[in-house]
Computed example of a mutant assay.
Amino acid sequence: MMSILASILSACATNKLPPIATVPQVDLPKFMGDWYVIAAIPTMIETQSFNAIENYKLNADGSIATTFTFNKGSLTGEFKTYQPHGFVIENSGNALWGMQFIWPIKAEYRIAYLNDDYTQTVIARNARDYVWIMARTPSISDTEYAKLTGFVSNLGYDLSKLRKVPHNTSKVNHP
C-alpha cells in the first residue's frame, strides 16, 4: 500500500512539460487524403499494425471522416478498419482536433509539425503518451526519419517507445 501511495505522490511531483504547440494554420482540404503511419508510439489497437494508413475526408459540416486501416500482426495479417470522427477545434488554425472513437470521449489530436508541401506530419498529444509520424508515401528517407524523430524527441517524448510501422510497398492495404 505504501509503495502505491509513494508512486502516486511521485507522479504528482514530476515536472509538467509545457503544452505542445501546433502549427499556425492547416489548409484542411490540402490535409485530406491518405497518410501512411511511418512510426508511432502506438495506442493499444496499433501495437501490431502493419501497412497502417489514416485517411481523412472533410464533411460538409466541417467535421473529419476518418478511416484508419491496417493489417494486424504482419504485412498480410487480418485487415482491420476503424472509423473515428475528427472535430476541428475553433480558433486553432485547424491544427487542433478532437478525435472521437467512442461517444462522448474526444481524444486530443495536435498537428505539431506539417511540412510546406503537406507530405509529412507529426500528430502529438500534450500527455506525450501517443505520437504519429506520417507521410503521403509508405516510406521516407533515413535523413527525413531522423529529422522527424528528433522533432518528436524535442517535444518530450521517450523515443524508446517509438515503433516503426512496416509497410508492404508493393501493394496498398485497401481492399
Rank of each mutant, 00 (worst) to 15 (best):
K57F: 05
P19H: 10
S74E: 09
N115V: 11
A11M: 00
L155C: 11
S10C: 01
Q25A: 15
H167P: 02
I105Q: 13
N168L: 02
T81P: 03
A146V: 06
Y118N: 06
A65I: 07
M32K: 14
P24C: 09
G77N: 09
N71D: 05
L5Y: 07
Y113C: 01
E78K: 06
P42L: 03
A124W: 07
D129Y: 09
D142K: 14
N55C: 12
R125K: 10
I105E: 14
V88C: 00
Y82D: 15
I64V: 10
N55P: 13
E144M: 07
Q120V: 12
I102Q: 11
N154G: 15
L148W: 09
A135N: 07
N168I: 00
G73D: 08
M32Q: 13
G86V: 01
I89W: 05
W132H: 10
A107H: 12
N91K: 12
Y145R: 01
G77Q: 06
G150H: 03
A21N: 08
D27I: 12
F50W: 13
H85N: 14
A107Q: 08
Y130N: 12
T169D: 04
R110S: 02
A40G: 08
T43M: 11
H85A: 12
G77L: 04
L96V: 00
I133D: 09
V152S: 02
W132Y: 07
H85E: 13
D61M: 10
S139F: 10
N94I: 04
I20V: 05
I64C: 04
P19G: 09
M44Q: 13
K30N: 15
K164G: 05
A124H: 03
Q25S: 14
I38L: 08
E78W: 03
R128N: 00
R163D: 15
V172P: 00
I41W: 08
T137Q: 14
A60T: 09
L114N: 06
S3H: 10
K57P: 06
I4D: 04
E78P: 08
M32R: 15
L96T: 00
D116L: 04
T169P: 05
D129L: 10
R110A: 03
A107F: 15
A127M: 15
F31W: 14
A127S: 15
K72V: 00
P104T: 11
T149L: 03
T76L: 07
K164A: 10
N173F: 04
D158P: 00
K147A: 11
Y56M: 08
N15P: 12
K171P: 01
Y145I: 06
V23P: 02
W97T: 03
R128F: 03
I105A: 08
N94G: 07
K30M: 13
T81Q: 07
A6G: 06
Y113N: 00
C12G: 09
P18H: 08
N126K: 09
F87V: 10
D158A: 03
V131P: 13
G86R: 01
A107T: 03
N91S: 09
P18Y: 11
N51S: 07
S141D: 10
K72P: 01
D61V: 08
V152Y: 02
A39F: 12
I8P: 03
A127N: 15
